[in-house]
Amino acid sequence: MRKLFPALSLRLWQVWYRNFLVFRRNFLVNFLLPMGEPILYLVAMGYGLGVFIKQIDGVPYARFIGPGLVSVAMMYAAFFECTYSSFVRMIFQRTFDAIIATPVNVDEVVAGEIFWGATRAALNSTMVYVVVLLFGLGPVWLLPFVPVFGFVCGVLFASMGMIATAVVPSIDFFNYPIFLFITPMFLFSGTFFPLTTLPKAVQTVSYAILPLTHIVRINRAFILGHPDATLLGSLAWLLVVGTVAFFLAIALMKRRLIK
């Protein structure tokens, strides 16, 4: 009989450490590259497109999309780490098989991978926020909070990535969750234009099922300086869905790895 609750111990950080060790080798590439893309977006959209848009919701366009870019970094970093990268480790490198021959168990391998994905989210979103700061589009005092929130959101997206990893038959199948879930979120979560321009029904769906919508909402409120109590609802949504996804990811990966 399979246990309902995962058997986790601090050993999971050894799995995290393994990925950190490899990451550290290409530190500069891994660390600085995430800054490149938001710079391009800010210049192209914020200032290029921004010439025509002037203001959205009372702020210049570049200011408007800054929080969107920080949010997207949280999503992409964690989701891609725990899909393509985890899949390569699991199937092609057989890293997980090697680890579970030691006292580290499957639950810890999966949790370690998810927390590593969340760490990537924390790092990347922080680097993006540094860019936002360099362009003078946000307050400096928020900087230490970005990685914390990035980690929390990262756990959610990393877990969702792991769920995909647990069920895809081959690496090409990741195109489905990306096309059906990640790209729509990139576009329809209030990242580049306010949700209020969309039909009411789309807005409702967006709030109901797209985690990025809640993340953008929280990031924008803080970065633009108008947080309010309703954000707690979004935070609660993220925490609940994140926790469920985390446990589901472990359960599904166990099914895949233990035969």
Binding site: R11, Q93, R94, A98, T102
Partner: peptide, 26 residues
């Protein structure tokens, strides 16, 4: 355990493979 497939860690050097494995055993 010496498994049928060589599931060493290709991202790491020879000695790092051993040192990392030791960590899994605490």
């Amino acid at each position: 355990v010496v498994p049928q497939d060589n599931n060493y860690d290709p991202d790491l050097s020879v000695i790092e493979n051993l040192l990392l494995y030791a960590r899994y055993f605490g």
